[in-house]
Design a protein around this nucleic acid. Structure first.
Lengths: 252, 252
DNA sequence: TAAAGATTGTTAAAATTTCACACGGAGTAA
DNA sequence: TTACTCCGTGTGAAATTTTAACAATCTTTA
């Protein structure tokens, strides 16, 4: 019932390209507007249509298919993250090998980075999907159990995996930082994974937006000394900047 | 002034894909919302963007996202695939361990399956993301290099990975089938991976929509005898059904 | 410099979407 | 059967976004 209706809507939309809700109501007189809205919403989630004011249009109409959107968490400190991602994007050179974590900042980095021939390792599947849009990037995913909260994988087996893998730089982010506790995150296996990453990477770049400062999460995976470069936004406090620089860490 | 601003908006939008008016206001703090609206309106007339509720999205975004090939596939034979997925969904019991491939049929299966406490292994990241919406499913991703065309991973290392992993049933699909060549796919590493899966799985369920019949792809990964159950749609030819049943394979 | 046209800002009204809650049917277990 | 849950659905008010109209400002050119 629902399924069929949605399918039919998609078909009509693919055919006509674009329709208003009013028109849809004429086609489906026996359901309420709200139901049609919800159908459109679902179709949008599936990437088959784009909802526009007053109705929807087929994705095909715009040329070929598309889909996939990021989740709703994209509102938290978005701007800071984009700024950071842009800075980090400048660090990616052709032919380099890079580890990227699965966080939302890495997600933005994936969008912002140039489409260069390079190798990227990641444990974030959303990140991987985003990267898949680049034509030249070679993507490798670290396997393991999937954590729902952040769409990242982690597994004890990752260690052996890294034994066979080389990368020059690691670009990661933390969900919390204090000078005393260092960089921390919410998952123990993830923190273990990151520790492994650090032993393999020649240079560690930490992306940290200023909202993370002063927060503490259960699992510390790096101390200040463990990183080489800190990438942050414009609201990063001076005292902290000096703290990092006093330990010879570049703050950008 | 106006021209440049519009140009800049288009650029940013092409880059970020999507933006709200609010975000645009932050980027252009010295013009009013109405002006930005008018700019978007003009860009829409030029066919460069699509205005959506609350903002706009780049036309390029819609064209490129999700690597054309993949989503294109998702629209072919949708109905058959959903039917198949629903049948397969009935096979999933609580506490079972299941391998699922990364194909589009598996994608539908992920949508259709009940939210039971079970373990699912997959090499498809789109499948994994879909599954992540279930509360109770424990998801494990097989790591390796990501193939753009189907958003699946595969790697020679997967073999060792499977050595430490157990699952009762494997539910996979093929992109081509003939009685002579058996089930085949487009990627050699993927075919290797599936062969490994078959050695571990106690039961193999093959999902095959009837449009795949008579097609041949480069890499055969299973013969008729290798599977236990064939899940297909209503258009599956009788001769084929009898062929399978003559070899003691259940056709459903 | 004046006048016309383009661009922008401001406000209220109109249109659309979202949200929250309620209802009824299908399925399930006691 | 009865009670209970889950899912799809309907409803109306609230919130948000868009439109439209007009005033203010800036540009250009005669």
């Amino acid at each position: 019932m629902k399924r069929e209706r949605i399918e039919e809507i998609a078909e009509i939309l693919d055919k006509r390209g674009k329709m208003t809700l009013e028109q849809l109501e004429e086609v489906f007189p026996n359901v309420s507007q709200m139901t049609l809205r919800r159908d459109l919403f679902q179709l949008e989630e599936d990437g088959r249509i784009i909802r526009i004011r007053g109705g929807a249009m087929s994705v095909k109409e715009v040329q070929k298919v598309s889909g996939e959107e990021y989740t709703k968490k994209t509102t938290i400190n978005t701007d800071a993250k984009i700024v950071i991602a842009q800075k980090a994007a400048g660090l990616i050179d052709a032919n380099s090998s890079i580890f990227l974590d699965g966080g939302t900042t890495a997600m933005y980095l994936s969008k912002e980075m140039p489409d260069l021939k390079c190798n990227i390792f990641t444990n974030g599947i959303a990140v991987a999907m985003e990267l898949a849009q680049k034509k030249n990037v070679n993507i490798t995913i670290v396997g393991g159990q999937l954590m729902r909260e952040n769409l990242s994988t982690a597994s004890p087996a990752a260690r052996e995996y890294f034994d066979r893998t080389n990368f020059e730089i690691a670009i990661v982010s933390a969900t919390a930082f204090t000078p005393e506790q260092g960089f921390s995150c919410n998952s123990q296996i993830e923190s273990e994974l990151l520790k492994n990453v650090f032993t393999k990477a020649r240079n560690v770049y930490m992306m940290l937006d200023s909202s993370k400062i002063g927060k503490i999460n259960p699992y510390t995976f790096a101390r200040i000394e463990d990183i080489d470069v800190l990438i942050t936004d414009d609201h990063f406090p001076k005292e902290y900047k000096e703290l990092f620089e006093s330990k010879n860490i570049v703050v950008m």
